[in-house]
Design a protein around this nucleic acid. Structure first.
Length: 484
DNA sequence: TTTTGAGTTGTTCGA
DNA sequence: GTCGAACAACTCAAA
């Protein structure tokens, strides 16, 4: 530590890879100390390794963060290893007097972070944590009786009512770094970008980083908010906000989204107000899922409704492989699974259809689907992924009724009536007429002949019959409800 | 304490 | 082709 400068403030970046509305960064800047940013690549993330798509994203997002820090005179230090070791070690190395971070809520991290805070304080280093990731932290939303909510609608009613005026922090325009900078690892050496093979060719639709996140929000608010309530259900339209990976990595905060969306809708009519509420309720689901994970730490591992522990799941590696690779013979399911593989993303409605198909048509444990999504989604998020899979399975806290079994053909006809989404992702079906695009096996021989499609060769026949699968799922569900 | 109304997103069947 | 009812029973939240 030099005589003329106080010990630096460390900003520990985690899933808050942005400069604006970043309470930890603001805290460090306002302390008047020189500021040093650090990111620690940990072997665990919520007790499990990051998926391939997440690593791809993190690679780009860290580059963007490093560049925007340098643009205002700052520097991002990269370290690898357990944060409980790396953060105190770096703090000692640079003589830090203050460490700031934004809180995470994964069950595997909360206790660790509390211990780290205590350890820093024991060494005489001030440690401060903030809410940078949620509108309402999980312990702040309670029922009238003081319990955590288990149903979305009353949760969101209470959570939005207590929110009050939402404010966002500006990005700092200048950072001062310490005279002597510590060593940083090289991002390239981390090998986060896939190679041999590089499967990420289709990921160029994404722009990770704070700039990309703001651009995405701006584009969505300009063209996508109007009629959002209807168009969000149509996968061919790409009408979603596509903010989920940006929100996951904290390249944009939910407060920023909340404020900007409401500002945009404030000079629109009643219809836009309804679209705004629908859009904000999606933020509400993100909040609710984090709330659930916080209060039910085993959300990703165990059925919330314990009678599902006795569910007769099938072990069927061939069917699982067909589902993963988009070769189930159901065009909407296959289109979704191929969109996922190609881009790291899948349209929300199609996620429900493929999840229902894996669970109810194939009777494969929802955890297998959750694991695949975890590895392949650029927006893979423990809370959202676990809560949504349990919702689909009907094993969750706020679960769909068991008789709600999506019909993949009817869903296609209803939400992709022109077949545009299927044609984009399942090109071998491109020449089929609209009438049979969602059920190719119903095409008569003349049509198949004309389009040159050989069912069973170019494109699989359905791996399971819908009516049979539906009856089988109802039977299985009856079995566990009768037991209980 | 008891009661009451409600619960993101659906499908099928029969009139 | 359209429309309403049935599909189970349970748990939650609030009065």
């Amino acid at each position: 530590m030099t005589e003329d400068m106080p010990g630096p403030a460390l900003v520990w970046f985690r899933r808050d890879l942005r400069l604006a509305d970043n309470p930890a960064l603001t805290c460090a800047v306002r302390s008047g100390r020189p500021v040093l940013a650090v990111f620690v690549l940990e072997p665990l993330d919520g007790a499990r390794s990051l998926g391939g798509a997440s690593l791809w994203w993190l690679d780009k997002s860290l580059r963007a963060l490093a560049a925007s820090l340098e643009a205002i005179g700052g520097r991002l230090i990269l370290r690898r290893g357990a944060a409980a070791v790396q953060i105190p070690s770096l703090a000692r190395e640079v003589g830090a007097g203050l460490v700031c971070w934004n809180r995470l809520y994964d069950p595997a991290l909360t206790e660790r972070d509390a211990e780290l805070k205590a350890a820093l304080r024991a060494e005489g280093v001030e440690a401060r944590s903030f809410n940078g990731a949620l509108l309402n932290e999980p312990w702040t939303v309670k029922t009238g009786a003081g319990h955590p909510f288990k149903v979305f609608t009353p949760y969101w009613r209470a959570a939005s009512a207590q929110l009050g005026a939402v404010e966002v922090l500006p990005a700092p325009d200048r950072l001062t770094v310490p005279h002597k900078l510590p060593q940083s690892e090289a991002l390239d050496a981390w090998g986060l970008h896939p190679r041999a093979p590089d499967w990420s060719g289709g990921f160029d639709v994404w722009t990770p980083g704070e700039g990309g996140a703001q651009a995405q929000l701006g584009a969505f608010l300009a063209t996508g908010l109007a009629d959002y309530g209807r168009r969000r259900d149509l996968p061919a339209e790409g009408a979603g906000s596509h903010l989920s990976p940006h929100l996951h990595w904290g390249e944009i905060s939910p407060r920023q989204v909340w404020v900007q969306a409401r500002r945009r809708a404030s000079h629109g009519g009643e219809a836009l107000k309804a679209d705004l509420d629908r859009f904000l309720s999606e933020l509400g689901w993100r909040e609710f899922n984090h709330h659930l994970l916080f209060h039910l730490p085993d959300l990703a591992g165990a059925n919330v409704r314990r009678q599902f522990d006795g569910f007769p799941w099938r072990r069927d590696p061939k069917a699982l492989a067909a589902w993963r690779s988009g070769r189930t013979g159901y065009p909407l399911v296959d289109a979704g699974m191929r969109e996922l593989w190609a881009t790291g993303f899948m349209h929300n409605r199609v996620r429900m259809v493929v999840a229902s198909f894996l669970i109810k048509h194939l009777l494969i444990d929802w955890r297998r689907g959750e694991a695949w999504f975890w590895d392949t989604l650029v927006d893979a998020d423990l809370a959202n992924n676990a809560a949504n899979w349990q919702w689909s399975a009907g094993s969750g806290a706020d679960a769909a009724p068991f008789f709600r079994i999506f019909n993949p053909i009817a869903q296609g006809q209803k939400f992709d009536p022109s077949g545009a989404y299927v044609r984009r992702w399942v090109p071998e079906l491109r020449r089929l007429p609209d009438a049979v695009i969602h059920a190719p096996w119903t095409a008569d021989a003349a049509v198949l002949d004309r389009t040159g499609l050989r069912l069973g060769a170019d494109y699989p026949n359905p791996i399971v019959d819908h009516a049979f699968a539906r009856a089988r799922a109802l039977e299985a569900l009856r079995a566990i409800t009768a037991e209980a």
